[in-house]
């Protein structure tokens, strides 16, 4: 592989598919999306197949993931929020497994592509807007007019609320994408230093210990980030869904 930190994000077509001039090819990204789905559903299906009253290790992990997401959703959006549980749980599992698979060397990180994270964020915001209007009708727009604001300030505050609402899908998607992309780039850069320094003789080999340590530390950090970003994505999803359920602040 080339010593280029950006190369790892390169898409490569595996099965070219072209419909009406649009590129629907099955790429390495698609392959890892399939892998993510297979790993996530396969693990959870295998872990819960025993339906043990006393859980085994795998079932324990599955149950903890369930309780974790359910607790987050319930505390952010209340008991009514549980109707969105399958979606939120799917998002958490998909992002988490995608991030963790991306940590395997030479594996593709699907969440390092903005279009993927943006599509997931739009799914969340689309659900919020769709359900908000379906459930509350035009009252959903009350979300943008907070109570207890002086009449003079209402237009200003409403403008700010609208802008902040519109920036949500962008911040939600960019946060995940930028974290994964930047982290993997940094890892690759430091790993690349080891190789290029080692090529510079004995002193270089001795000095390359430093980027090696850095790479090891960054790998640990990246595992943390992989989990943390899945968590943050889930928490924000729950908070946005709360707006759809209770738009009156």
């Amino acid at each position: 592989m080339a010593n280029d930190p950006i190369h790892q994000f390169q898409l490569s077509t595996i099965v070219p598919i072209d419909v009406g001039g649009l590129n629907f090819s099955f790429t390495n990204s698609s392959l890892f999306m399939v892998a993510t789905t297979v790993v996530a559903t396969g693990f959870l299906a295998a872990a819960t197949s025993g339906r043990g009253l006393v859980p085994g290790r795998m079932q324990m992990v599955a149950e903890q993931a369930y309780e974790f997401v359910a607790g987050t959703l319930r505390s952010a959006a209340g008991t009514e929020g549980m109707r969105f549980f399958p979606m939120v749980f799917s998002l958490f599992m998909f992002v988490l497994v995608a991030n963790l698979i991306g940590m395997v060397p030479y594996f593709f990180t699907i969440t390092s592509h903005i279009i993927v994270t943006f599509a997931l964020a739009m799914l969340v915001i689309g659900t919020v807007v769709g359900y908000g209007f379906y459930k509350h009708g035009l009252h959903f727009l009350g979300l943008f007019v907070p109570h207890g604001v002086p009449t003079l300030l209402v237009p200003l505050v409403t403008a700010i609320e609208v802008i902040s609402f519109l920036s949500r899908p962008i911040s939600l998607s960019v946060r995940l994408f930028a974290n994964m992309m930047a982290g993997h780039t940094a890892l690759k850069v430091f790993a690349g230093f080891i190789v290029s320094m080692s090529a510079a003789g004995a002193v270089g080999v001795a000095g390359s210990v430093l980027p090696l340590l850095m790479t090891v530390a960054l790998t640990g950090l990246e595992f943390l980030v992989a989990f943390l970003q899945a968590y943050v994505f889930t928490v924000l999803t729950c908070m946005y869904l709360n707006d759809a359920l209770h738009p009156g602040h």
């Binding site: 898409l11 590129n23 399939v34 993510t36 996530a40 599509a119």
Partner: peptide
């Protein structure tokens, strides 16, 4: 288009 299609398919199946 490819990313969106395959994401929709895989995430849809997962969901």
């Amino acid at each position: 288009p490819s990313q969106l299609l395959w994401l929709a398919l895989t995430f849809g199946f997962l969901w």
